[in-house]
Structure formats: structure tokens, C-alpha cells
Nucleic acid binder design. Structure first.
Lengths: 225, 225
DNA sequence: CCAAACCAGATTGTATACGATTTGAGCAGG
DNA sequence: CCTGCTCAAATCGTATACAATCTGGTTTGG
């Protein structure tokens, strides 16, 4: 299907597939297979996989190959801890720079998210997962710091992976209304309220996770052989 | 000189050289040259350069090659803005987790920094630059979040690049006493004071920068050709 | 029958080959 | 003398080749 050629395009395509869970954690990503799929040589496939490993979405084991990452419970905890620390900061920056155009954009994202929520089927579910992350990224963009935005992109992407591994409820994009309330508080310039709601929101997402080590997991993953 | 073989080792060696300014911004890093220098093929040299570009230390221009990054004034501003937002958070986390062993480590770093300050010669200056960054990194490690630590590593490394381009005073590792005071406040569990000192410290570093666009800059860099 | 060595297939690690693009020098025309 | 073209050297982009490593099944000795 893909007519892509550059390693960046391949990286983006695989990243999207990981984020909306068409590729599940632990899946082997052989260089030859990726190359064939995108009609390029192993060289470019390898470059794309290496890029994804820098983003923490893929783990490469020497002489064994690349796999969609399976974050450990500890990694998951640290990831959400980082989000709890970073997102309030981003919210604060975003609040101080919020303008009319930003509000429109946020409202449009919320509306799209709500629309997807009422649709059925896996395609809609995947789009909803992505839309949910996009709202957090939109806030980072409003904050207007390219460095922070990149950090949030990594956090959101890896969070999707964590939810794929440890999420319990079928769809844990969780409170759409929570997103709505956060944006509402932000527009009212009520930073304290927005921050409180954001932390609550992250708590909710993490509460849906079961971070007790899975019993049926791969022995190699357990012992890191 | 280097007997390294893996692309990771090459990446680390080049990163160190960039951070302590043996490699200055704008320097061309040709794949063939890097490969020859480390006795590997272009394949591994290229992988190392690509890794560094993900860290923001190297920019690769299509069909032209890799160069030590020259952050723009705007990038520099955003970088320090991000530090002003992140470091207080890290300080707060570090304060809540500070133990005896951590204090010893911090004191040792301060002492080493002071020792280097009293030495002369370029080698000592470079070591001092690195030591200065190491203190900020040590604080991140005490905070105990691997994600935040990685973010700080990137920020500190890129900051060194910014100082190399825009720093005015010969040696802008700046207040050694400032580092000392921050650690002191931290050990007294005076988070407010430690945070204030940290922000002050970052202000001082940034105050030493001249972020007005350089006149003699490369036309290609100006217009991004 | 079981355990350990072994071999074949598959996959990654690294180097090299070759085409494509850029760049700067030299030359021809104005 | 200046402008613009041509071309060769250098460098990057990508594919391919071959060596090293891992894996799983088979054989062999007990």
C-alpha cells in the first residue's frame, strides 16, 4: 500500500501504526520485512527503525532485531510521572499565550473527538486514540516552545504504547469530557482549575492501567536475555 | 587515536567533542572523514551522525552532509526557556528524594569543579565546561525519573552549543559559587531558595549570550538554502 | 529414550559498489 | 572584465554483497 520512499516517511508510517495500535507491543519488525513492505532496501528500513528506537517506540536487540517496545511497569510509572510534572508547566505557558485562533483550534479538536466517540468500528476507535493525544500536543504547541513540544510528542506517543500494554478498559481514551473541561478552564484563564483538571485527567488514565507484572509475558522480556 | 568500533561509541566520542567545544558549530562532519577517523565504513559513521542529529547536536542537509549544529537565536531562547521551566521541576523532585549519598555526590562534583577552575590551560577549561553541565545532570538523576534525565541531557548538551556560538565572556561556565549555593539551599531543604537561585543562575548564563544576529554569518544559514 | 553436539536456514552487522547531487574551477562568449 | 556554461571532483543516497550471529531441528552417542 505505501508508496513512500524516504526513511522519514517509513518512520512516520510505522510510528502512526504503533500509536493507533495496528502494531502491538512485542511485534517483530524485521528489516527485510519492513523494506519489502515499503519497497526499499534494508538500509532505509534500518534507518527508520533506528529513528524509532531513539523515540522509545521500538527496541533493538543486538543481533536479534527490532520490536515494537513493551514498556515495563516501571517505565510506565516514570512516563506518567513525567507527564504529571510537564503538563502543568505546559498548561501554564499555554494559558499565558492563549489567543482567539488557539481557542478555535482547540474547540475543533474537541468536536472531532466527540464525533469519533459516537462512531463505531475499529477505525473510529483508532482515530479517537490519536485525537485524544492530539489535544495534549495542541496545548504544547500553544505554549509555543519547540523543545517542550518535541518532549510532549515523545511522551504522548509512548503513553499510547503503555496503554496498549497495560490498559484494561477496552477504550481508555477515557474522559472526553475531561478534555472539554480542561479547555474550558483554560479559556476562562483559570489556570489553577485547568491544572487540577489535567492532573485529575492523568490520574484517570493511569488508574485504568494494571501495572502488576503480567504472568503470561515472554520469558526473554522478563529476564532481558 | 580512537579504537572504537560501534556507532554508539563513535556517537559518544563526537558528542563529547561537541560539548567541550573541540568541534565548533558549523564544522563539517563528512561521513568519509568520520569513518576514516574511527576506522569504520561510512555505514557506521552515518549511523552515528544520524543519532547526533536526533539529539539536535548535528544538522544534516540533504545531499550536502552533516555539520555541527549552529542554533539560531530563536532556538537558543527556546532552549533556555525550556530549562527555566524544567529545572525548577527537577529541583523540586530532587529535593523530595535527596539522601545522604546524593549529597556526597553533589559535593564531590562541586569540589572537582572548583579544582578545575583553579587550573590553567584549555584542557582544564574544557573539563570545567563539562563539569558544569554534570552538576545539572546530577540533579536530574537525583530526581529519579529516567525520562526527565534524558530530556535534561539533551538540554545541557545543546546549551553548550549555544554558549559556544553566542557566549561572550571567554569562559561562561559562569558562577561556580552559584552551583554551590544551589546545592546548599537544596541540602537545607529550602526549595524556594534553591529554585530562585537556579533561575538566577540560568539568567546569568543567558545574560552572557549575545543573541543579536551575527553580521558575518553564512548566507546559507540565514536563508536556509 | 534423552542429552548434547551440529548443521542449515534465517536475520542482523558491516563494508563496499554504484548512481545521483552538489560544488567549484575553468573556459567560451559577450 | 564579466557572465554563464560545462565538466570533473567530491560527497551523499541507496542497494547489494558477504560475514557474523542466532535459532530450531536433526543427528549422534550414551
Amino acid at each position: 500500500m505505501p508508496m513512500t520512499q524516504t526513511s522519514e516517511a517509513i518512520r512516520d508510517a510505522i510510528r502512526d501504526a504503533i500509536i493507533d495500535r495496528r502494531l502491538t507491543p512485542g511485534t517483530k519488525l524485521s528489516e527485510a520485512d519492513v523494506g519489502k513492505l515499503f519497497h526499499v532496501s534494508r538500509t532505509l528500513a534500518r534507518a527508520a527503525l533506528q529513528a524509532l528506537s531513539y523515540e522509545g517506540l521500538v527496541t533493538v536487540e543486538k543481533n536479534r532485531g527490532a520490536f515494537v517496545a513493551q514498556p515495563s511497569p516501571e517505565e510506565a510509572r516514570q512516563l506518567f510521572a513525567a507527564r504529571r510534572l510537564l503538563e502543568p508547566v505546559i498548561l501554564s505557558e499555554a494559558a499565558s499565550k492563549l489567543e482567539e485562533a488557539h481557542s478555535h483550534h482547540l474547540k475543533a479538536l474537541l468536536q472531532e473527538e466527540g464525533r469519533l466517540r459516537n462512531e463505531h468500528g475499529q477505525i473510529a476507535r483508532r482515530a479517537e486514540i490519536k485525537a485524544s493525544g492530539d489535544l495534549h500536543l495542541a496545548l504544547a504547541q500553544i505554549a509555543g516552545n519547540a523543545v517542550l513540544t518535541r518532549f510532549m510528542e515523545e511522551l504522548v506517543a509512548r503513553s499510547s504504547l503503555v496503554i496498549a500494554v497495560y490498559g484494561q478498559s477496552a477504550i481508555s481514551s477515557c474522559g472526553h469530557s475531561e478534555h472539554h473541561d480542561i479547555v474550558e478552564a483554560l479559556e476562562k484563564r483559570d489556570l489553577a482549575q485547568a491544572t487540577a483538571l489535567m492532573l485529575h485527567h492523568i490520574d484517570h488514565i493511569e488508574a485504568d492501567l494494571d501495572l502488576t507484572p503480567k504472568s503470561g509475558s515472554n520469558l526473554r522480556d522478563v529476564f532481558g536475555g
